[in-house]
Amino acid sequence: MQDVISISNLSKTYASGFSALKNVDLTIHRGEIFALLGPNGAGKTTLISIVCGIVNPSSGSVTVDGHDIQRDYRASRSLIGLVPQELSTDAFESVWNTVTFSRGLFGKAANPAHIEKMLRALSLWDKKDNRIITLSGGMKRRLMIAKALSHEPQILFLDEPTAGVDVELRRDMWQLVRDLRDSGVTIILTTHYIEEAEEMADRIGVITHGELILVEEKCELMRKLGKKQLTLLLQQPLSHVPTELVSRGLTLSGDGSELIYTYDTQDADAGVAELLKELAAAGIHYKDLRTEQSSLEDIFVSLVSGRSKKS
């Protein structure tokens, strides 16, 4: 697959001396949805801001569709649309004017038809003459998206697009993002909602303390790191795990009524069938069983907490 953004050895140390990014290497493929996950203060916004030209990198290089973001900033920036994390708008401007302004700023000739299409797609058409100050938070968020899309960018950055957005609108936004991807736009989004990354992303990057600790296809990530758990509801509670089964790494729930078996989905011979046979042989009977697969959230939490324990 073709790379559309390549970031190499990128570091950022703020004037305060704080090191917000440490030697980040990352490539974004054309046409994908890439989700950047990480706790507060991990460096997500810093990374995006550098690519978009809002923050100066301390070292390293970034190219966008082959254009260096500093030497060839005109070419690289015209390809990018950015929806920042903060809702900052010109309160007294009208919706229509502010979107028209954005398009001009990015060097495109006026195109009222495109702006109308954008506003309609984002359900803002009936607000086009309203002053921004009269919009609700969710409407402002959509307006920021309209501004970012006003110049028909090939790459869209969404910095926490669904923060403070209700469930229905969030679904709408996901749909919009998918539609954009289908029309060929590359999308990089940051989020705290793992559910969002799980739902949308093709690939996922996890960043913490300024280091990109993992970049992986979402499915691959789920497969690799996913844990499965088999829970057996016993007919008779046990006081301890039977000695012949201890080597299996089984655990008992607090009241002894559930026997829990955790295994890697990757593990070819997890031996669930074996286990069940051994249980029968040991005279342990169960009335029901259920399995659970860990979500991206669990994976994420274990990654990030494992990381901070180490450091």
């Binding site: 809002i54 005109r74 990018i80 920042p84 903060e86 309160a91 700023l105």
Partner: peptide
């Protein structure tokens, strides 16, 4: 107001 982000991210010299 923070709207400077747009100016800084735009292809303007």
């Amino acid at each position: 107001s923070g709207t400077i982000y747009e100016l800084l991210s735009a292809p303007v010299s």
